[in-house]
């Protein structure tokens, strides 16, 4: 039992391919701790990162991130494989973050575009990702921009742009039309872009 979850494998972060993932899920359903440890190894960093950006408090974020894997382990038998394991884990993480926000009654201020209804330009050549060197300051600016947008926009931005979930997957997860996902993504990107432009001026 002491060999479970090999802490020594912390650095072994790699995305699982579909067949390996399926095999691990099958083993987890038979209460195989070591198999679940491999899943934690593969996703702990991304899941923790997502939760940290969704929840302001670092300590609470860590608790929630642990809870994500606890719930996943408890409910592995319910995982039907229609979505990827990664999508399923982020769905759990998102639901826990929403529950946490409701409990804390901490509703992030809605990002409003009404202050500046001028046309939005998101095709600024200065936003060439290869031309942007992510220094510590700029990283902080982007992280702060993510934190200051509404939960709705932040969720879509992180799950689509960072975790690479598709429009349909997100629409199913958040129970909104695909068009709404696109709208939120566009507004979220605009918010980040504005923050970066302000910093660079």
């Amino acid at each position: 039992m002491s060999a479970i979850f090999g802490v020594k494998r912390l650095a072994n972060q790699e995305r699982l391919d579909a067949s390996a993932e399926q095999a691990l899920v099958e083993q987890c359903r038979r209460q195989n701790f070591e198999a679940f440890g491999k899943i934690v190894d593969a996703y702990q960093s991304r899941v923790t990162g997502f939760v940290r950006r969704m929840v302001a408090s670092g300590e609470e974020a860590e608790d929630i991130a642990q809870e994500v894997f606890i719930r996943a382990y408890q409910n592995m038998s319910r995982f039907d494989g229609r979505s990827s394991l990664r999508t399923w884990l982020f769905r759990i993480a998102y639901n826990l973050c929403v529950d946490h926000a409701r409990k804390k009654q901490r509703i992030a201020p809605e990002f409003s575009m009404t202050e500046n209804e001028d046309s939005i330009d998101v095709s600024d050549v200065r936003w060439d990702p290869e031309a942007i060197v992510l220094g510590d300051e700029l990283r902080d600016v982007i992280e702060n921009a993510i934190l200051t947008m509404s939960e709705k926009l932040r969720t879509v931005l992180l799950l689509h742009d960072r975790e690479e979930l598709g429009y349909e997957e997100l629409a199913g997860m958040l129970n909104v039309p695909v068009g709404t996902i696109k709208s939120r993504l566009f507004l979220a990107r605009s918010h980040v872009q504005k923050a970066v432009e302000s910093y660079r001026r």
Partner: peptide, 10 residues
């Protein structure tokens, strides 16, 4: 750019 942000290890 967002994908370039690093996640700190737990």
């Amino acid at each position: 750019t967002l994908r370039g942000l690093e996640d700190s290890e737990p």
